[in-house]
Amino acid sequence: MIKTVLSVIGVDHSDGDLILAIELAREAEAHLAVLVLAISAPPPASEYAAVVNAAWLEERQEDIERLRERVEEVKALLAVTQLSADVGGEYLDRAWIDEAVGHRARCADLTVIGPVLAADDNLRTPVLKGALYQAQIPVLFVPDGKRPTVRPKRVLVGWDGGLEASRAVHEALPLLAGAEEVHIAMVDPRGREDGLQIEPGADIAAYLARHGVKAVVDRLPSGGQPVADALRTHAVDTAADMIVIGAYGHSRLRDLIFGGVTRSMIGNADLPVFMAR
């Protein structure tokens, strides 16, 4: 059950993503936590360090003041909604954004990412990393022109039997249980080599049925197209209003590269995507 929704916005972002988060929190009857982020300028390296540093310090103070003002603007906007809410601001180096988001997201049930944040190349990936990997809570990715919801009617679940997909299904259970129709989409599925599972997907369908989820398994041939494209096409064919997928990727030191399916779903989303890892 979703009781706390986290919305992350940039200090110079419009109110678009915040309004989407307000709508989602109101629908879920949840507390809304807002984190406003400002990226600090790196310290200068110059032979005129004394002069440059003075200008840099002045710029930092202006940025910090702008962040304070933006936090107050968000508080005023939320006060009108009468929602249960809190607002915080962070001024930090880009390398620490994921940790700051992760720290805040550990006290939330869901992070909502709207189209404004999604279009911000500086913030999008570290915010996703913070929520999905540092805090390990699900993300609802909302593309431009779509409205977020915790009560989807028709849901497409991308299923390959892996740990990430399993995690996504478990996190999405409250949404799936309330849906009228759930399609478990498997692209080019294979049966187990030991022969114990004749029909791929039958196990997850049975599991969901025990939770009261009305699910059917759709086994799809890729036809040579990428998995993400096959899922998007089937989402249209089934009139889905949400896709549920696992967030695939790997890490090396502090860097994380999202896997091909995850990256494609994020970059070309045309309906809300619920992701978990």
Rank of each mutant, 00 (worst) to 15 (best):
I2R: 00
V11F: 00
D15V: 10
G16C: 08
D17V: 03
L18H: 05
A21I: 06
R26P: 02
A30G: 01
A33Y: 04
L35A: 08
L35D: 06
L35E: 09
V36C: 07
S40V: 04
S40T: 12
S40P: 04
A41K: 10
P44E: 07
E47P: 10
Y48K: 10
Y48T: 12
Y48W: 14
A50N: 11
A55Q: 14
A55D: 13
E58P: 04
R60D: 09
Q61G: 14
E62G: 02
R68Q: 12
V71T: 01
E73V: 02
L77N: 00
L78D: 08
A79P: 03
A79N: 05
T81I: 06
T81P: 05
S84Q: 13
S84F: 03
E90H: 03
Y91D: 03
Y91R: 04
L92A: 13
L92E: 01
D98H: 14
E99Q: 12
G102M: 07
H103F: 12
R104I: 04
A105H: 05
C107L: 13
C107S: 15
L110P: 03
T111W: 04
I113D: 07
P115I: 06
A118S: 08
A118T: 00
A118M: 01
D120G: 03
D120V: 02
L123A: 02
L123T: 00
L123K: 01
L123Y: 01
R124M: 00
P126F: 04
V127Y: 00
L128E: 01
K129R: 14
A131T: 09
A131N: 01
L132D: 04
Y133N: 09
Y133G: 00
Y133Q: 12
I137W: 07
I137E: 09
L140T: 11
V142C: 10
L156H: 12
W159A: 11
G162D: 14
E164S: 15
R167P: 07
A168L: 10
V169G: 05
A172T: 02
A172E: 02
L173Q: 08
A177W: 04
A179W: 08
H183E: 13
M186R: 11
V187R: 00
P189N: 12
R190L: 14
R190A: 13
G191D: 11
R192Y: 08
E193K: 11
G195N: 07
Q197F: 07
E199L: 09
P200V: 12
A202Q: 13
A202F: 04
I204Y: 05
A205Y: 02
A209P: 04
V213I: 10
V217E: 11
R219E: 14
S222P: 07
G223K: 09
G223M: 13
P226K: 06
V227W: 02
L231F: 05
T233V: 11
H234L: 08
T238L: 07
A239H: 11
M242S: 05
I243C: 08
V244M: 01
I245V: 13
Y248T: 09
R252G: 14
R252I: 09
D255T: 15
I257V: 13
G259P: 01
G259N: 00
I266A: 07
G267W: 06
N268V: 01
L271T: 10
P272L: 12
P272S: 09
P272Y: 11
F274L: 07
F274Y: 15
F274N: 06
F274I: 03
M275V: 05
